[in-house]
């Protein structure tokens, strides 16, 4: 299937960078609401609506915490609501806090999808692009971590079976130390074996199962154009001393529309493929 997550890692990375950078840099509630909406819709498609609905509670608590605490730390703004210990609590600071909270929650939802979509193979690819050696280190670490945890469990249960009655911290540290010995020794042997098979020789290629297809090119192009339109036409809100909403002009409305389209791309992509899949299944 040609789903969003099957796009080329570079395309995906650019897309998430666009969305997260825009959400963090632009304190305009209209854009943030669109960004949050796109992120939540996509998360709901890939993780299931139930999971995302349940996650609302935590994010909403974070949003409230930021919105409510901002007036306590910032006393700018002209409209005083009430006073706490001679400190003004202003409407502007409260609204600004709410907008910040929205930005943070939107970015965190994008990261939620990012964590889901970006698997180890994609990390390895990106790091391998910076340097092949780094890509190798990455995949080795991903292989070592579960192995080390498993051998730690084995050693710990073996020690318990011997009847060692050490305290918890000491037993953990002792077993960890044994894991270190084992893994360092194995590491050197692994590297010798790699060298013996010609690791690091010149003219060796790097296999990657990702191909940058025309599809990726078109997708990345469309996303980049929408992103540029959104950036060029973006107008901000002013919060201090008075709240002043953005000016609406042809350009700024175009920018909002472009950004809305950009943030819904993954969702539309996923739903479109879902429908295609249903149709092809029903034809059988």
């Amino acid at each position: 299937m040609n789903t969003f997550r099957n796009l080329h890692p570079l395309t995906l990375l650019c897309y998430f960078a666009f969305m997260i950078v825009f959400s963090v840099f632009n304190f305009n509630p209209i854009y943030l609401a669109l960004s949050l909406f796109g992120a939540v819709m996509y998360a709901a498609v890939i993780q299931g609506a139930g999971v995302v609905l349940r996650s609302f509670v935590g994010y909403f608590a974070m949003f409230l915490l930021i919105a409510v605490t901002n007036p306590l730390f910032s006393h700018n703004g002209a409209t005083a609501l009430f006073f706490i210990n001679d400190n003004r609590v202003t409407l502007e600071a409260l609204v600004y806090g709410a907008v910040l909270g929205l930005a943070i929650v939107a970015a965190l939802y994008w990261f939620r999808s990012f964590n889901e979509v970006f698997d180890s193979e994609k990390y390895r690819f990106i790091f391998g692009r910076i340097s092949p050696g780094l890509g190798l280190v990455f995949s080795m670490i991903l292989r070592f971590v579960p192995e080390l945890v498993r051998s730690f469990r084995d050693i710990k249960s073996a020690q318990r079976a011997f009847g060692s009655n050490q305290g918890r911290v000491k037993r953990y540290l002792g077993s960890f130390s044994a894991v270190i010995t084992q893994s360092l020794e194995n590491g050197v042997i692994t590297s010798d074996s790699m060298n013996a098979r010609g690791f690091g020789l010149k003219h060796r290629g790097l296999y990657s199962r990702f191909r940058f297809t025309l599809y990726d090119g078109v997708y990345l192009g469309v996303a980049a154009v929408l992103f540029s339109i959104a950036c060029i036409g973006a107008r901000g809100f002013e919060y201090y001393p008075y709240i002043k909403p953005m000016e609406f002009s042809a350009m700024s409305i175009l920018s909002v529309c472009a950004f809305g389209a950009l943030s819904l791309i993954p969702f539309i992509f996923e739903v479109k493929e879902g429908i295609k899949w249903r149709i092809s299944v029903s034809r059988i």
Binding site: S131, G133, V137, V145, V149, S183, N186, G187, V188, N195
Partner: peptide, 26 residues
């Protein structure tokens, strides 16, 4: 990275990093 890290050093870097990550689980 590429110019300073070769063979054994790469693997030892991977092992040390894996140990510190695995430590978080352990």
């Amino acid at each position: 990275f590429e110019s300073t890290f070769t063979g054994r050093k790469i693997v030892i870097l991977a092992v040390m990093t894996a140990l510190s990550v695995a430590g978080r689980f352990i």
